[in-house]
Amino acid sequence: MAKRLSVIDVDRCVGCQSCMFACARRLGEGGLAGACIGVRSAGGIRRGFVVVVCRACPDPPCARVCPTDALLLRPPGGVRLRADLCIGCGNCAEACPFGAVFWDRAQNKPQICVYCGYCARYCPYEVLALEDLTPPPSIRGRDGEAAGGGVRKEAPHAPP
């Protein structure tokens, strides 16, 4: 079953950024260059935090604007990068309204969530979870019940 990362409850986020470091560590390195998830304050720390993740759109705008079709659709939602086709134009990063297309400056190519859920394992406050993605997400009810079922732990107001 295809997965996606979900922000269960952003109000529990303390801004520790353990998820960002986990995402980079998944590639076997330290630091933040490899992170495909972003945590920043919602206009100052007193207001809490915003967690930016790829929500695995069924009809992703990032892929639509790619001039070389380097972002392949991953049914039922989300994308996968074919780095050999990418020319590093940056259209995808601009098209994502959440800012969930991060940028690999060394390669000059996008870096996008691979829906592995490694970050969620390091979230101490249950802000993040990996969930099953059942088609088609667009007809999901507000309460998160997908037609045909299968979506667990869906927040009413999903990411970011």
Binding site: V14, G15, C16, Q17, S18, F21, Y122, P124
Partner: peptide
């Protein structure tokens, strides 16, 4: 929390 501190 401080950056990279899960303790908060």
């Amino acid at each position: 929390a401080c950056a990279h501190c899960p303790v908060a």
